[in-house]
């Protein structure tokens, strides 16, 4: 379905929704177990995401300790009843830091996905609907974003504008808008050939109206799927940048900086790096599972590969 050739066929086949029914129609005995496994996975992912979001969002209230309070009397404590996940080299509580760090990481990731989605989505829909020079320029820019690995692009950008939380969000959005643009452009290309767009045009509907009332509502489900799948990618990218010292700045923790900080102590105090790493992996994994589930539900013809 992802059409990147720029062709505008006049008659476009409506994608047949295959795949959705696979789970609802009676499945063969062999497939039944994978069906339950899937349900279980989604349930698990939902729990992880909910716990992480609640714990991070309310970290100021829920965290057992102040995440940036140094306590030189309790450095490098292993996990115990007092400090469930141990303490770091400055005696700061790891659990509290993971919660606070998650707050920063998730806030950055959600804002960046939102920005990337809105920018990329609008560019894609307009490029697909209007075509012409705008389309050509937008798609070449998207090619540039795709050609450069996100980390390198982000490194260059942070190097250019300096690192602050605001810049981090901008950089992450700039490194992720193109996927939205491409997928939504191809959806728009097929939508604009559909009967209802044709009819709207013949009733003198303005381009703005067609885009707002006919195109956008019909690409919304794809947008949601893309955004869910993108969250994980952006969390990882944010962690990578923070790990490299280009993201969230100390003393505020983020999952990436915590993993980086713990590297020096991996042998004496594995918990400093490992716990934030595990939480990061669990969150990203769960995000992807939910994204896949959303795709199966909302937009089964969308390919996860781009």
């Amino acid at each position: 379905m992802v059409d990147e050739t720029g062709e505008r066929p006049r008659h476009v086949d409506v994608p047949v929704a295959t795949g959705v029914t696979d789970t609802s129609v009676a499945v063969k005995a062999g497939q039944r177990s994978t069906f339950w496994l899937k349900k279980l996975q989604v349930g698990f992912a939902l729990c992880v995401v909910l716990v992480v979001i609640v714990a991070c969002a309310l970290s100021d209230v829920l965290a057992p300790y102040d995440p940036i309070a140094i306590s030189l009397g309790a450095t490098l404590q292993p996990p115990s009843a007092e400090h469930w996940l141990g303490t770091d080299q400055l005696g700061r509580d790891i659990l509290s830091r993971i919660m606070k760090g998650g707050q920063v990481s998730l806030l950055v990731a959600f804002t960046a996905v939102f920005l990337a989605g809105v920018i990329g989505g609008l560019v894609g829909v307009i490029a697909g609907y209007v075509g012409g020079v705008f389309d050509a320029v937008a798609m070449r820019l998207a090619d540039v974003q795709f050609a450069l690995p996100a980390v390198i692009l982000a490194l260059v950008l942070v190097g250019a504008v300096g690192s602050s939380l605001f810049n981090l969000v901008i950089v992450l959005s700039l490194a992720n808008w193109a996927r939205f643009a491409r997928v939504l452009r191809s959806e728009t290309l097929s939508l604009r050939e559909r009967g209802f767009v044709e009819l709207a045009k013949l009733s003198d509907a303005s381009t703005t109206r067609i885009v707002l009332r006919h195109i956008l509502p019909n690409v919304m489900s794809t947008f949601i799927v893309l955004a869910t799948l993108d969250i994980g990618i952006i969390i990882i990218l944010e962690a990578t940048l923070s790990f490299l010292g280009l993201g969230v700045q100390p003393p505020y923790p983020s999952w990436g900086t915590m993993i980086a900080d713990g590297r020096a102590f991996l042998e004496q105090a594995w918990w400093i790096s490992i716990f934030p790493g595990v939480v990061l992996i669990l969150t990203v994994l769960s995000g992807n599972i939910l994204g896949d589930a959303a795709r199966d539900r909302l937009s089964p013809t969308l390919s996860t590969k781009w």
Binding site: V14, G195, E198, L199, P217
Partner: peptide
């Protein structure tokens, strides 16, 4: 106009 296919001539989200 009235088009052939009532499945694509009506917007599914309207």
């Amino acid at each position: 106009p009235v088009l052939q296919d009532p499945y694509t001539s009506l917007s599914p989200r309207m």
